[in-house]
Design a protein around this nucleic acid. Structure first.
Lengths: 199, 199, 199, 199
DNA sequence: GATGAATGAGTATTCATTCAT
DNA sequence: CATGAATGAATACTCATTCAT
């Protein structure tokens, strides 16, 4: 009902290009002119669609965080039993595909921006609220099914999020695929032990 | 012959001001002119000392990461037995004083910069190498003293770092002191269980 | 769709002002800001049209050398017989109107620039190629009509150019109208003798 | 009597470096800092010796024009009979060694400057006065010796100067050694014919 | 919907220069 | 003699933005 207006398509296109400019030349060098250059259009066209750069940045954060959610929920499509879903989610939390959804540098640029812009902070909160609620809901089924023991669903959710963020952050410095794999494997093992999961 | 060099003192002073400008108005709004304004000196003086803004940013990262190290090692001064050191370090990893050493927004601005500047990345590596080695050395004494069981020193070090970064990152979004305390307490409890520490 | 382009008109206007700034305050003092000041517009408007100062300078050289050509060919309009054209051209080569087309100081600033900018050098080459070819073509008709004797058209062309440049250069130092006239008269007489022209 | 003060030596050294900076990066990019860089000294030292940049530029022009005179008179050392001196001077006027004394770009930068600085103009006048007087004196001996006929010494001097400057200027655009040689040979032949010199 | 003109504030950096040491 | 601190004005250029077309 109500197909996307041309403006929405154009805006998405612009954000796509914005993302790539950020990836290519960095947050500090990105500008409306550079994005327009990349798209071969006039800079004022971007202002026409977004009113201001700030609004554009806010929309970009939405755009990027949406991608995260989409990638996450998409990859769980069709996975149905609690046990399967548990395995799948654990694999993702300690896995590497995660990192390829959004460029590391762009993601942390957005994360930084949350400290400077209330709307962006709010958007991050929504994302992590949803993520946390989602994991909590999942954890309930795991507890009920006896897959994990001895922990509250809320606790499980937070544990997984913290682990995931910690690994990602650390990997940003030690960009070594093997070390990442080794570290992730160890932490996954620890997590399974913590939740008393049987091998 | 020649005028006495004030470079070291002056540079430090400039970096101090740079840090506060970043904290106050953000990375994207900070400029040489703004720092100079704050110091009531001429902008070209900053260039005189640092040659370029890029060099200045690099030095700033050093300055900030040095502070971290200093704060950490200082707080352990005079703590001597393995047991006491273990308690102390665990308290810091899961504690809150950590967060007050450097402004959250400034820290993540620096973290972001590492993706764009090889020298900054290297500086981060050095910091985490040292941190990791330090924790590893500590962990050896804990293992030897039978305080922690069933894990390699390297593993223990990485576990603690990942936990600490994950909590910090997450707290950046959920800036709620009570939630932080609850979460940290839970994760600390889990950590102690993982390492089979007796209460 | 889009706003009507004023670029050609505006660019010419800017170059005109650039020329006058150069004439008034010299190459070493000329700046985008000074030109903009003179035009009562914003400096960034000049960048808007020329992209960079270097491009602007290149266009200025074109603009100035175009003027030379225009002045030269214009002054020959309607002069038709070889003999009349010969007289006219000799008058110009050894004449003074030449000097008033472009300010001496600006011309030599451009000439200097050719050593530093390949495009400008090329533009000078094109000018002198055309000038030389033009004189050669004229010289052919002079030889055929028996006006000049004993020299190849190419030689005649180069002789005249060298003479003209030499006189101009020398006059730059000895800025004395009478001395110039005397010198030019003498050299013209010599030239006519060289080419065996009957008085 | 009175050996050169250290200041004089140092000043010469600075001018030497100034000249090379001009040659390497051009008049528009040269600065006191760049010269000091090249010499590995402090910029304020150059000001210490020359009081201001303008004075430095003026001294540079002197320095360069002195070189010209020195090169010219040196090359005539020991050449004694009028006929020999005539041959020698004609060779130089139409020769190529001339061009190698001072970098073309630097020379025309100085020539340009004469339009902007009265002292520099005056220095050029002195040079060409001397040059002209020198050639006039020589020409007298040539006339007396019957080597050249039918022209006044003053005329001969001016003819030679104009020719020389014209060739040099033209060569700046058509930087082709062979074309230069051909052109110079032709103009030399014409000059000898003009002065009725017997082969 | 899209362009290009125009602005005005801002950027980092360079400049010549002065002065204390 | 020489250095380095410090200034203040200037540089080309980029920025986001507005507005007319």
């Amino acid at each position: 009902m109500g197909r996307k207006s041309k403006a929405d398509v154009r805006k998405k296109e612009i954000l796509e290009n914005f993302y790539h400019v950020l990836k290519d030349i960095g947050f500090e060098n990105a500008s409306i002119a550079k994005i327009a250059d990349r798209m071969d259009v006039n800079p004022s066209l971007l202002i026409h669609y977004f009113k201001s750069k700030e609004a554009m940045v806010e929309d970009l954060v939405n755009f990027i965080l949406d991608r995260f959610e989409a990638a996450f929920s998409q990859s769980l499509d069709g996975v149905e039993t609690p046990q399967e879903r548990f395995n799948h989610i654990i694999s993702m939390i300690f896995g590497t595909e995660w990192l390829e959804v959004i460029d590391h540098s762009v993601f942390y640029a957005c994360y930084y921006l949350k400290s400077r812009n209330e709307k962006i902070l709010e958007r991050f909160r929504v994302l992590y609220d949803r993520f946390s609620n989602f994991l909590e809901d999942e954890a309930k089924t795991w507890v009920e099914a006896g897959i994990v023991k001895g922990h509250q669903p809320t606790e499980i959710a937070e544990y997984l999020i913290v682990m995931n963020e910690g690994i990602t952050f650390y990997h940003g410095i030690r960009q070594d695929k093997e070390a990442y794999a080794r570290r992730a494997a160890y932490l996954k093992k620890v997590a399974l032990a913590t939740f008393e999961v049987e091998a």
